[in-house]
Amino acid sequence: MSSTKNDAQHDNAARTPSDAGNWASSTGRLNVARTPTGALNINVNGRLLMSPIQGFGKMWQKTYRARLSGAQTTPAGVIQEWKANFPRFWPAGNRFYGPITGIAPGEVGLIDLALPGKAKLSTGVLVLYADDESFTLMTPQGHIFAGWITFRAFDDAGVTVAEAQVLMRANDPIYELALFLGGNAQEDRFWQHTLTQLAAHFGVTASVETRTVCIDNGRQWRRAGNIWHNASIRTTIYMTTLPPRAVFRSVRNVATKRR
């Protein structure tokens, strides 16, 4: 390596990049400092983050866009409101327990998703990145998909456009099948609803343009073992064993007192 290249690398290492404050500083496993009342933290603490590289299914990029024509706002104004009211725009039955400090790099949010048949899925996300005009949530082991969702706003010929873009692979074979059997359409409806509500928040009606691109048609069978952390299965087991566990605890407490 030439000395010029060594110097360049040294200079680069010494500089503090302007994006430094926008990224989560933690790595490795997720840690929830405080579980909000009503939230389930059974599939988040201790889980590893999953990029699309670690997922199982085909890799998809899904882009949902709403042009906020007529809205008196800016891209930064849209993102500020989106961060502040993030779960408010979601379809009914889904809950997001955000951090007290709001959507900021490194914070962890807990999620309860409504599944068909009144089933529930408890999971979470890390705020991977956030700046004035975008923020990105990354998923952990057990989530439906491995990857991230970037929410951003930008100016297009004088019109502010709001966008949600998902880059993902289904985390395991069960999720891959579920996405094929209707989960993909359900996810489309989820983000179309969110963007419609976001537009309504700014007093405008917007149709949502949806674009789906298959980035990688292959499935990563070596990742099939991700199923071990499947949050849907674990939530179901947790919920169905809740009553017997409560009875068992009561009986044990009575027995302990008698002794």
Binding site: N6, Q9, S25, L128
Partner: peptide
């Protein structure tokens, strides 16, 4: 990949890109 500063190495680890992209210290 090479020439990554400490900050960008951290981002590659955080996003787990380092699982699939080899990260080294020099072109050699």
């Amino acid at each position: 990949a090479w020439g990554l500063s400490e900050h960008y190495r951290h981002i590659f680890e955080l996003t787990r890109l380092d699982d699939a992209i080899g990260i080294v210290d020099s072109e050699a």
